[in-house]
Amino acid sequence: MALVVVDVMPKPEILDPQGKAVTQALERLELPGLTVRQGKRFEITVEGEVTPERLEQIKQAADMLLANTTIETYNVRVEGQ
């Protein structure tokens, strides 16, 4: 079993209302100067080896479903490498 992580983030030019809310909450907690952008992390458990084909499959999953590339970017990486 191996773990592949897909990180999805809103594109820099896209407003991130959630990140903004968290940023403002941190200010209220007297933790200023921390600007947060909020994304999503997908942990995908892969049966067997993480082959290039597997990675391609996961990239496809990110493109089709996990991320909306109109507003988000994604990054695929094998955990522990």
Partner: peptide
């Protein structure tokens, strides 16, 4: 419809939150 690419663009969380 936007997710299905029948229409362009996307709808995100409102700025007023």
């Amino acid at each position: 419809l936007c997710e299905a690419h029948l229409l362009p663009g996307a709808l995100i969380r409102s700025d007023r939150r």
